[in-house]
Nucleic acid binder design. Structure first.
Lengths: 342, 342
DNA sequence: CTGTTAGCGCCTTCAA
DNA sequence: TTGAAGGCGCTAACAG
C-alpha cells in the first residue's frame, strides 16, 4: 500500500487547487457550494485526513499542553491529572503526560523535551521545592502553571490549597475535643505541603498554649511502627495523632491497628488528605479533604487563559483553594454519617 | 524578542552548512572535531534547541505513543497508565494521554485525533466490549495494543489478566471454608472483566454442585445496600459475598458495615482487585490481586516491539497475566499477615 | 568530511 | 471565488 493521501491528491481528484481544499477543510473563507461538494466527495473517496503534523509544523502551535507530575500511582496526583486531561479534551487540546518520580533532573529533561515539541503550555506539579530546577526563564514565551506546590519564581502562576489553614483548623478541632498532646506525623519537612501543614498544626498548638511534637520520617511501615510505639510507651504519650498525608496515614493506621489500639477511645487520629475508603476504616477517619480535581481544573483553566491571551504575567497569580474538614469518627465525634465543614 | 534560532542561524554563526549542524546534532556521520567544536559553540551561544516539530514532520515519526483509558481517577487504570508512561519515558518516547469515560464515541474521536497526530503506536483500554468502535482497519499501519479488556478484532494484540481462573480459585477458597451460599456482586455483565469473573465464579460453584447467585447492578451505595439487605433477610441468606471489582467491594463493604454485620464471623467477604488500604479495613480483605502496573508494562513493551519491527501481526498476540490470591482475614482465614498464593 | 538541492504537507500571501 | 508560489525547519540523497 502507498502512503496516506495528501491535500494535493484530494485537489487533483476534485480538479481544484490545494488551497480550495484547505479552505473547505477550515472554513476560513467562502467557497462556492458546488466546488465544496466536489472537494468533500474527493475527501471521502480517498479517506483523506489532514496531516496534523504538517499543520502543527506550519503554525508552530501544537494544540497540545504538557503535564508533568511526580507519579500516577498516587491517587491524589491521578485525580489532578484526570481533571487536567478533561479540561484539555474539552478544548480540543492533546495532553502529553510525563512522570518525574520527584526527580528534579528528570523533571528538567522532560520539560525541555516538551518545549522542543512546542507544547502551547505546561501544567506542572514541581518536584520537591528546594530542588526543582524549573525557572520561568527556561520556558521562553510558553506559559506554565504550577500547582499543588509553589515554585520559587514569582513570575509563574501557581494553584495551591489551604494547607496551613486546613491543618490549623483540624488541629483546633482535636484541641476542642480536649486533646493536649497531639503528635504530628509526616514524611519530610522538605516537602512543601507537609511543611505547610506542619506550620498550621504548630500555630494551632501554640495558640492553645500547647507544646508541639512532630515526627518526620514516616517512610515505611516499619519506621512508623517503631516511632508510634516509642511515642506511646514514652512519658506523656500523645492522645491524638495528626497524619499529614495519605501515606503517613496509612502507616500510622497500620501501626495503631497492629498495636491493638482502640480508636477513638484510646487515641484519636485525624489525617490530611481524604482517600477512597477512608470511611471504611475502623473507625471512619476524620480528614482534611483537598479538592484534587478542582485544583487540576483550575490550573488547566488558568493555563488556557494564558494561552488564549498570548501574554505572560509579570507577576504570576497565586490561587489558593479552600479545603474541607470531613468529620467522621476517628477524632472522637459521633456522627453516624460524615459531617463536612467548609 | 525574535523567534527561536534555527539550524541555519547556527550554521551561519559557525560558518558551515546546515547539514553539518544536523550531523553534529544527530551524530549520524562523522564530522571533524574542529568543525564539531565550532558548531557546538554556536549552538550554546544561540541557546539553540532543535525544533522537534520540524523533525517529526520531516520523518513522519513522532516518537510519541497514544494512551487511551477510561478514567484516571480509578487507581487501577492510573497504575496501568503509570507503567505505560514509565516504559515510554525509558525509550525516549512521549505519551499523549486521553480519557474516554467509557464512551465509545469519545474513544473513536480521540483515537482519530491521535492518528492524525501520527503517533507511532497506541495502547488502549477499550470502552465496554460490545460498544467499542475501534477496529484494526482504522489504524492503518499504526500498531495498537489493547489491554485489560479484549477487542473483537483478532488481528489486534491484547494483554489481559486471569479473570476467570482467578475468580474461580477465589470461589473455591470460599467453598473450602465451608461456604455453600455465595453471592457474586458486580456492576454489569456487559463489562468484559466482570463477566469473565462471573464465569469463573459460576464454574467453581457448578463444579462443587452449588447454585450460583449473582447480582449485577452495584451502581451506587444505596442500590447495593438495598440488595444486600434483601439478600440477607431472604430465605437461605448467603454466608459469603464475592465482589467483583473495587467499586462493588466498596459498596458491599459499606452496606455490611452499616448493617452491623460482623466479618468474617457472621459473613465472609472476598473481592476481585486489590486496593490500597484493603488491609486496613476491618477485617482485612482477602482479594484477588491483579498486576496493574505489570499489565501496563507488558502492553507498552509489546507495542514498542511492534513499532521496532515495523510490521503488523496477522494474528494478534493474546497475553494473559497471572493473578495472585491474597489471603487476609475477611474470608475466614486467620493469618496475622497476608498470605499470597501465586 | 562537507555543502547543495529538494521536499515532507500545509497555509499565508498575493495575484487573477 | 480561486490558484500559484513560497516557505515553516529539518534531513535524505547526492555531489564535491
Amino acid at each position: 500500500m502507498h502512503s496516506k493521501p495528501t491535500m494535493s491528491d484530494v485537489a487533483r481528484l476534485a480538479g481544484v487547487g490545494t488551497m480550495t481544499v484547505s479552505r473547505v477543510l477550515n472554513g476560513t473563507v467562502r467557497v462556492s457550494e458546488e466546488t465544496a461538494r466536489r472537494v468533500q466527495k474527493a475527501i471521502e473517496q480517498l479517506k483523506y485526513r489532514p496531516n496534523q503534523l504538517a499543520r502543527v509544523f506550519r503554525s508552530q502551535r501544537s494544540q497540545t499542553i504538557g503535564l508533568i507530575i511526580p507519579y500516577l500511582y498516587d491517587p491524589f496526583f491521578a485525580n489532578c491529572a484526570h481533571a487536567v486531561t478533561t479540561v484539555a479534551k474539552d478544548r480540543g487540546f492533546s495532553v502529553i503526560i510525563t512522570t518525574t518520580n520527584e526527580d528534579p533532573d528528570t523533571e528538567y529533561v522532560q520539560a525541555e523535551q516538551m518545549l522542543q515539541r512546542h507544547v502551547d503550555g505546561l501544567v506542572v506539579i514541581p518536584a520537591h521545592r528546594r530542588q526543582s530546577r524549573l525557572t520561568r526563564s527556561m520556558f521562553g514565551r510558553t506559559p506554565v502553571v504550577a500547582f499543588d506546590r509553589p515554585v520559587s519564581d514569582p513570575a509563574m502562576d501557581v494553584v495551591l490549597v489551604q494547607n496551613t489553614a486546613g491543618s490549623r483548623r483540624m488541629t483546633e478541632h482535636l484541641i476542642e475535643h480536649g486533646h493536649k498532646r497531639i503528635s504530628f506525623m509526616g514524611l519530610s519537612r522538605r516537602l512543601f505541603t507537609i511543611n505547610a501543614r506542619f506550620l498550621g498544626y504548630r500555630r494551632a498548638m501554640q495558640d492553645a498554649g500547647l507544646e508541639d511534637d512532630a515526627y518526620f520520617g514516616c517512610d515505611s511501615q516499619d519506621d512508623t511502627l517503631q516511632m508510634v510505639q516509642q511515642k506511646l510507651r514514652g512519658p506523656n504519650p500523645p492522645t491524638a495523632f495528626f497524619t499529614s498525608n495519605t501515606l503517613a496515614s496509612r502507616y500510622v493506621l497500620g501501626a495503631l491497628v497492629s498495636l491493638g489500639v482502640k480508636m477513638p477511645h484510646d487515641l484519636a487520629l485525624v489525617a490530611f488528605d481524604d482517600f477512597d475508603l477512608a470511611d471504611m476504616t475502623s473507625p471512619p477517619l476524620t480528614v482534611v479533604r483537598q479538592p484534587a480535581q478542582e485544583m487540576g481544573r483550575v490550573a488547566a483553566s488558568l493555563l488556557f487563559e494564558r494561552i488564549a491571551r498570548g501574554e505572560l504575567p509579570q507577576t504570576g497569580n497565586r490561587i489558593v483553594l479552600p479545603v474541607e474538614i470531613v468529620l467522621r469518627r476517628s477524632c472522637g465525634c459521633k456522627h453516624r454519617t460524615p459531617v463536612v465543614i467548609h
